[in-house]
Design a protein around this nucleic acid. Structure first.
Lengths: 180, 180
DNA sequence: GGTTCCATGTAAGTCGTTACATGATTCC
DNA sequence: GGAATCATGTAACGACTTACATGGAACC
């Protein structure tokens, strides 16, 4: 029940078509709320039926038409109402943690496989961390000083990405060291 | 497609009934893979049909009978096979991050509401962090030295809980400081 | 007598993923 | 000519949640 609101936020930052949204979700917001294009189309259709957004068909040359969505006043109200709603804690699910606890029951092959998974994930997290740090340097070379409220919030969400990735990496590194 | 395997791990550590499992999932493993009892019963039934587990009805005095599940050789094989499978990265979903980015579009009331949500979550994470640290002191007073492989893995998963909670807390603290 | 706990489920519905479909256009 | 991109979807399925149901035992 929250993809709708994530889309509202994205559309308030900038009106967009379904595909543009799904691409944007591959970046910024998507790091904290992923969605495929199929899902996005479905939810957009429902939001349009509910009057939260309106679509305007934009004719393009050399490309298919696209439907650019924008948020209606009703959609804005829905967003504000949602902000005031208590935020349930997102259940943290780590398949890797389950495998770590299962490694003892998998013999030497199982243990090696889990080690390999952990190594792979550590590399992934390191990569993403590099990416976030690069974004920080590029978009906020002077740190958070002098940013508008909107920019400050975007900066702080990026900081969240960095801090969470650092936590993950610290964990997996500790695991690998303990098993070496 | 992974609750099955989480249950296999839990049952290999100790055979149990559905309700006992759902209680255990409120603790240790559950911090990384939550599940309600309804879901657990359903999956256990499927696993029994698949021959991964067998149920033994245990008569109790003053209480209803319970069905204690144990893992079969086929279940053990399924667990080993799963360990060797590549581990997809669990999509990280933070409703709070979406709200942070939406706060600018919610007026002063919206911003205050988001701040309150962040404060609440920070308190929750601090509480859980205290809990994990308490568990560490109680169960591993001497650190990881001298633990069996199984205990070491349990220790390392607990360490994961601590490191991830610390990351979360650091993030939310930074947010609150930036908005004070 | 009412409430809570134990223990096992069913039913209905939402959320999300995976696979497939279409049709035009540009790139090699 | 074949592949990739743009753009929008449908269909089928599985995962997960929420609400409800049952029935006895213990607690106050």
């Amino acid at each position: 029940m929250a993809l709708e609101h994530a889309l509202l936020v994205a559309l308030r930052e900038q009106p967009a078509s379904g595909l543009e949204l799904s691409r944007r979700f591959g970046k910024s917001i998507g790091h904290f709320w992923s969605a495929t294009h199929q899902q996005i189309y479905k939810v957009l259709a429902r939001m349009e039926a509910d009057g939260w957004v309106v679509a305007e068909t934009v004719v393009q040359q050399g490309r298919p038409d696209k439907k650019v969505y924008d948020v209606t006043p009703a959609g804005r109200e829905a967003l504000v109402a949602w902000l005031a709603t208590p935020t349930p804690e997102s259940p943290l699910r780590s398949e890797l943690a389950v495998k770590m606890r299962g490694a003892s029951f998998g013999g030497s092959a199982g243990r090696a496989a889990v080690l390999e998974s952990v190594r792979q994930h550590a590399a992934d997290h390191e990569l993403r961390l590099d990416h976030y740090r690069h974004l920080t340097k590029r978009d906020y070379p002077d740190g958070p000083a002098g940013l508008s409220p909107l920019e400050l919030d975007q900066y702080l969400v990026l900081r969240g990405g960095i801090l969470l990735e650092e936590g993950q990496l610290a964990w997996l590194t500790e695991y690998l060291e303990a098993h070496s």
